[in-house]
Design a binder for these strands. Structure first.
Lengths: 348, 348
DNA sequence: CTGAAAGCGCTTACAG
DNA sequence: CTGAAAGCGCTTACAG
């Protein structure tokens, strides 16, 4: 067992290099004027001793922790939660946020979803990113009260004034999707939405209604409980398909809903896309690998992560930054909506 | 725009309460002897001023950051990675680790998967949890070199000496599973494994071979590239089912492989469980919601998270702790392996 | 029971 | 170009 020799400090480096700690600090951080020979010597000594600056001491001095925290909606805390709702999206945006934060020399603290508001107050952070805030999310009130800057991915609709959010161009995405479905022959389109209150769901329903009208589509909306996910979507889709005037196209808000629709269609001997067009509002491997592969709108979690973290860090550093940011929500065409001989539709 | 009045410090509390900072510190942390009336007054003042101790200053003093970091295998970094392999498992263990860490007053720093070893050196942390380390994982060498304690979930097989890991009782789980399959009439069992080198996959293959022999089963192993996941498993399963002596049971290492097998069976008109038994080594909603629901071994990520974090924190605090920890890997029976009229098998 | 003071490891005006 | 010193906000021997 190695005896953990204490980690060298700036004082150790100064002593070995035969200079003051001021000079070491200047040399290592390229501040002030330091003789280039001195700088070289200091750098060499620091390297040799394995010196790494103590981030805690630096934080205490600067008043900044270089840590931003991430708040996700309750996922995986319980099997009864909406854990599976676009899990692929949450995992991708989470790892992307960590990467972008590190690229900007910030650590990403992952807050537990069940954290109480009181615990949130105790956390040390310079800023926060909140993905899919609830309506009137109380966590945002706590952060505001603590004067901790934050950026949300999708806005909290109850805070219409705040510009600090990154949001999808849902209208643009649904416009392309519904235009495409219409071109493929759809007339009666059904949206499988969730009963969740987050902004994305609310805004998607609005966009669906408006843009279906624009494209002369008969619109219908079914709200599916998020639990038990595919099963609920499967049942709801089944009822719709068994009705007197069944839809000829179904749009599912999430990937799991979309695969539920596929199962319902398969059970009824309906061909996709021949008898029914199917599309998803979230592009994940579930829809890419379905048979047939399912047309989807791409939420581009990596771009959302980059936009959100860079907006937050600009705020932290007092730089000007465009806010809010609207992100493209591109349509990815796949076989589930492509009918032979039809106009393939216009996707960008 | 509110002017961010500076956050009150222990000095402010002391001044308002008319005592020294020493007394405030003692009162608030229940250290030393403080008159109960004084303590009450100090507490009230702290409360009124909204005092929250500065964690950075505390860390500098104590030399501990109260932060542990989490290293995941590369997930989601690129579509070509094994992002989808048991995504449900990674998301659940990640959020569970965050919860347990917070329950022990530690923050969880999520490290980006693509982090270089040099960047890893710059991170401030008291300890680390590594989920599914690679074989001879170089990140563990870095942590060792920095004298940062860590715990892995599943061991790094190239470090046979280290006791600091939490591992599944893979032998026990496969014993139950193969006994059950045999009881349901299976004779030729095929394992769909991945070509990944992590410990779980390696150990599962060994267990499969040994325990198939114990239960008089003809064993066969197919290694599936992890990409493109379900598709590859689907194709590999299809080839096996089309062979001269097709298996009558298939065990898939991960949930996505299992659903790939289901598709291959369905395409061939094979009934599950009538013609083919199907089971998964990972219990996720994909297998729970498949039709029919798929029998699976449960990796219990929440228990693994708790065991790993508590082992790590015990190490950090210098307490004795059992290591390594072996976790139960229970069998969850579902319709994909239950034949009418058969002995239902013995699951615990 | 209470308080003055040292010190954790840095950075940064300031003086030379 | 270089260095002595103050100070970030705590905790903790130590003295009274």
């Amino acid at each position: 067992v190695a005896v953990p020799r204490p980690r060298p400090t700036i004082t150790d480096v100064a002593a070995v290099a035969g200079v003051s700690v001021t000079t070491v600090s200047h040399a290592l951080n390229n501040k002030g004027r330091v003789d280039s020979e001195t700088r070289a010597r200091v750098t060499a000594v620091a390297q040799r001793l394995g010196y790494r600056p103590n981030a805690t001491a630096r934080s205490l001095r600067s008043g900044r922790s270089a840590i931003i925290s991430l708040l996700l909606p309750p996922l995986g805390a319980a099997r009864r939660s909406n854990e599976a709702l676009a899990l692929d999206f949450y995992m991708r945006i989470t790892t992307a946020i960590a990467s972008v934060a590190h690229a900007h020399s910030h650590g990403l603290l992952l807050l537990a979803p069940i954290q109480t508001l009181q615990e949130l107050r105790a956390v040390t952070m310079d800023g926060a990113v909140i993905v899919d805030p609830n309506d009137a999310d109380p966590r945002l009130d706590v952060l505001s009260d603590l004067v901790i800057p934050f950026v949300t991915v999708e806005r909290d609709l109850s805070r219409p004034v705040s510009p600090w959010h990154v949001s999808l161009d849902i209208d643009g995405g649904f416009d392309h999707l519904l235009e495409h479905l219409r071109a493929q022959g759809a007339r009666r389109v059904c949206l499988l939405s969730s009963d969740a209150s987050w902004a994305y769901a609310v805004r998607a329903v609005e966009a669906f209604v408006t843009l279906a009208a624009k494209h002369s589509l008969d619109a219908r909306i079914i709200r599916v409980p998020v639990i038990p996910l595919e099963g609920a979507a499967h049942d709801a889709a089944g009822s719709a398909l068994d009705s007197a005037e069944p839809p000829d196209a179904m749009v599912a808000l999430t990937d799991r809903f979309a695969t539920g629709v596929m199962h319902a269609a398969r059970e009824r001997g309906l061909d996709v896309p021949g008898d029914l067009l199917v599309a998803s509002g979230c592009d994940t491997f579930h829809v890419r690998e379905a048979r047939p592969p399912i047309t989807a709108l791409d939420m581009q979690p990596e771009l959302a992560a980059k936009a959100a973290v860079e907006m937050l860090i600009a705020r932290l550093e007092g730089r000007e930054v465009d806010a809010p940011r609207m992100l493209d929500y591109p349509l990815v065409l796949r076989d589930s909506t492509r009918r032979a001989g039809s106009d393939p539709g216009r996707a960008r």
